[in-house]
Design a protein around this nucleic acid. Structure first.
Ligand SMILES: [Mn+2]
Ligand SMILES: [Mn+2]
Ligand SMILES: [Mn+2]
Ligand SMILES: [Mn+2]
Lengths: 217, 217
DNA sequence: GTATATTTTTAGATTAGCCTAAAAAATAAT
DNA sequence: ATTATTTTTTAGGCTAATCTAAAAATATAC
């Protein structure tokens, strides 16, 4: 059993480690959790005692198999709730993240199964992020941010980064949402801004924005 | 701003005081919160500093106007969530209370307004309890428990006590739910058990059960 | 009206999660 | 290979919410 705070640390570790593929350092975790390094050291001792991470002093932490599946259960809840808020309650996609941050900690497996059923077993959340199954498994397809694409590339938007509400409002305005066709028309070397085609209309986006739109090849 | 724990204490005080109409003693609150009297004394000092209750040493606490409306906001959330779980997710009425105890602490006024709208602005929850409005106002109609009724009484079930899951399963079996017609056919003096008519079929109920069914005159 | 019993409050500890400041280890620079 | 810088850990303290044991106030009994 993890506390609410422990769940949030574990989730941050999972994300910072890119799904468990690399170690996470004390300072980056402190930054992500808006807390101090000393507090992080305290917490990673607890999480390591609960065997959801392994901890090597001075060299950072890694998620265990158990930790990965527990993190994914929380992420599953987060994304199902976001889907509920948008699909059923009529929230805009930029309004749901903060509420989902609270709802993801509600502890009731039955509730989540019923919610999943009610939503028709969605595969992705409103931002295009995949929803893990009830065993804590996720199928991640490799996603590339638009800023790394070559001119001429054609594909579909797979997902967008979901934590900044203002970014989401802007993406909504230019029609950049999951499932939509995208083509790279040009790239300005000076500031790495890009000209892209979204569905049928041309837009210019800054590097900042291009990093937050993800496509699948 | 009240913490989750403070909200739970305030809600218990509100219920034990019959909606603010009488003082609540330290020991009964300790009993209701499954905690010790010493912990209660600590907490009522905090709640009284936040002006949601008034506290007279050794003589118990009373809810303030402010406290009453804050308690009713939590109760509103609890009852809306219970309604959602039954009406939309297909939970049985005996399965919803514990989950609602968690969900009632989610802090998002917009979420609750949207949920209320989604549910079609229900007036009562699945157990017949009235749902307070978004200003923290409730209209309580005087409800009488069945054990206090005279033989020959006829009326409708208004509500049932909702915290014991096994009781609710039993009530469901005998058809005792809000809105259903009820008539008192007889009462046994020895153990105060009763014979009643629910809709159209006759059942015998113990005093225990009769105390948990509420009718409106 | 004093003595006894009950209820409530205070005193002193404990745990989770956080902090600042100081010490220790690892990394980078000369 | 020392010295300097950066990162991380330890030490010690704080608050919220809990506990046990002792003291104080109130209620009950004779
Ligand atoms: Mn989110
Ligand atoms: Mn999302
Ligand atoms: Mn309930
Ligand atoms: Mn109820």
């Amino acid at each position: 059993m993890l506390s609410l705070t422990e769940e949030n640390y574990l989730k941050a570790i999972y994300h910072l480690s890119d799904g468990g593929s690399k170690a996470v350092l004390t300072n980056e975790l402190a930054e992500a959790m808006s807390t101090k390094a000393a507090s992080v050291t305290d917490m990673i001792k607890k999480l390591s005692a609960k065997e959801v991470i392994t901890y090597e002093k001075y060299y950072g932490v890694n998620v265990t198999i158990k930790g990965k599946s527990e993190a994914l259960i929380v992420i599953r809840k987060h994304r199902l709730w976001e889907t509920f808020l948008v699909e059923k309650l009529g929230f805009a996609w930029d309004e749901v993240h903060d509420v989902a941050e609270q709802l993801e900690h509600i502890n009731s497996p039955r509730l989540i199964e019923k919610l999943d059923e009610f939503l028709g077993y969605p595969k992705v959340d409103p931002h295009g992020d995949p929803i893990p199954d009830n065993k804590g498994k996720i199928k991640l397809q490799p996603q590339v941010p638009v800023d790394q694409l070559q001119v001429g590339f054609q594909g579909k938007i797979a997902a967008v980064k979901d934590s900044d509400s203002n970014l989401l409002k802007y993406l909504d305005k230019i029609g950049a949402k999951p499932g939509v066709k995208i083509k790279v028309l040009g790239k300005e070397e000076y500031d790495e801004s890009m000209e892209i085609l979204i569905e049928d209309h041309r837009v210019f986006i800054s590097k900042e924005v291009s990093q937050n739109i993800l496509v699948v090849g």
